[in-house]
Nucleic acid binder design. Structure first.
Lengths: 249, 249
DNA sequence: TTCATATTTAATGTCGACAATATTTATCAG
DNA sequence: CTGATAAATATTGTCGACATTAAATATGAA
């Protein structure tokens, strides 16, 4: 059932690089620190779906007791970032095909509305910050820095969510953006180097800044539609025909 | 700052009546049990916004250690049911005016879509169950059993959320239904005996069962609009003019 | 060897203890 | 009596210990 061949310690190391600022990982950390570290690692796909998250390894890494780790893991599970089953290690969430489709549908609804609400509300500095993010994404794409490009892409959507006047919707969108990142890592069709969709983000930003709410919302939904289409979401046939797979005559 | 004059023990007692089945509250309980108990008590407004939730009282009531209680409280806070500040007792959430408006706006969006998705998908038995809930709500309304009526009203919306083919959206709606219940308890205009809106639920059920998706969604949104309008959401003026309040000449 | 079983190991589940902090109560000067 | 200060109480924050359960390893018979 292990998706990832890396050991637990190696998986945890993906986090260590992030949170330790200087020396060894002996500095105390709050549950929020742990939450954020794992959150970011999952968002940027350094912790792929199914990665094990052992409490002891994390507690040693962050220099706290298991209680703190457990609180962080509980919150992460509540936000669908991890899965927790009784007496089993927490793992990064592995949504199924159907749930993946539902996540995209929900995100189309929520992000469409968020986009509509943000459109026309950005001040000069906010618009500039948005354009800068898009520029950085493009640059990362051209240089082939795929991980950084993913990071930028996520940052763009997060920025929009945080700029939304309705923060209840904004928080929902943040959750859905993360879950989208997870399912992309899971179902990205092999060979698809990235999900850099033309200049969608650039055009979207223009519409938002200009205040074309309806067009912006429409583009956002189409953008997500295209993204979903790039995934490999074919149902594995219910009854696997072992014979046809193993017969080599 | 205390919203409620009742003591902590009395507040906790609202839960005890629910979860203890027979003898005294000495049966062990999981964090899920505690979560559900508080969830239901908040939903049915037995625990009004601001109610204190001390860990020790809960742990004694449910016969478990504080660890279990803390886990339940962490999850409840993650779902915006309670508020947790460092070194302070957890309390039932008290959303402000602005957040209340955002909750209603978000719920209009989400419940509108959920309604559209559910419309036309209900089988015979599901349709019957829905009508039964509505009948019970009406009955409770006519008999003046307000608490039971609130319970039924919530159950109707929860039922729709659970019937939604898109459970990602369904879960979001469940959260928003609960938060709506909280803000209704907070901002219900005095004298308004209830939020029983004509026969909205009955008409909504008819449209859903008949499969009139667009009309059903539209009605759901209007229903929520009306509900929000019944609340007293006037901003308290930023600088309170004590003079005008206290001058009696 | 290979499979089933027993042992060992390692992880989570739960609890109680103690420290740190906030709240309440008691004390006392004015 | 009022208001500020100090002691006492109550509550949360964190930790380590032990029990429980799952997984990995070792053992032995066929």
């Amino acid at each position: 059932m292990a998706v990832d061949p890396r050991t637990d310690k190696q998986a945890a190391a993906s986090l260590g690089a992030m949170h330790t600022t200087g020396g060894r990982g002996s500095r105390k950390a709050s549950d929020q620190t742990i939450y954020d570290s794992i959150y970011q690692a999952v968002l940027t796909q350094r912790l792929p779906p199914g990665s094990k998250l052992p409490e002891v390894a994390l507690s040693e890494l962050f220099g706290v007791s298991r209680s703190i780790v457990r609180k962080a893991l509980t919150r992460l599970a509540s936000d669908h970032v991890t899965e927790q089953s009784p007496n089993q290690m927490a793992v990064v969430a592995r949504p199924g095909i159907e749930e993946t489709r539902q996540i995209f549908a929900a995100r189309r609804l929520v992000e469409g509305e968020v986009t509509r609400l943000v459109a026309g509300t950005l001040g000069k500095s906010e618009a500039q910050a948005l354009r800068k993010l898009i520029k950085e994404e493009k640059s990362a794409h051209e240089r082939g820095q795929d991980q950084h490009r993913v990071h930028c892409s996520m940052a763009i959507h997060q920025y929009l969510a945080r700029q939304c006047p309705n923060q209840v919707l904004g928080k929902m969108m943040l959750e859905l953006v993360l879950r989208t990142s997870i399912v992309i890592a899971l179902y990205k069709a092999p060979g698809i180097t990235a999900c850099f969709l033309g200049n969608d983000h650039g055009r979207l930003a223009d519409l938002i800044i200009k205040g074309e709410a309806d067009q912006a919302a429409q583009l956002a939904r189409e953008h997500l539609d295209t993204l979903e289409g790039l995934l490999d979401l074919d149902e594995p046939s219910g009854d696997i025909d072992l014979a046809s797979i193993l017969r080599y005559t």
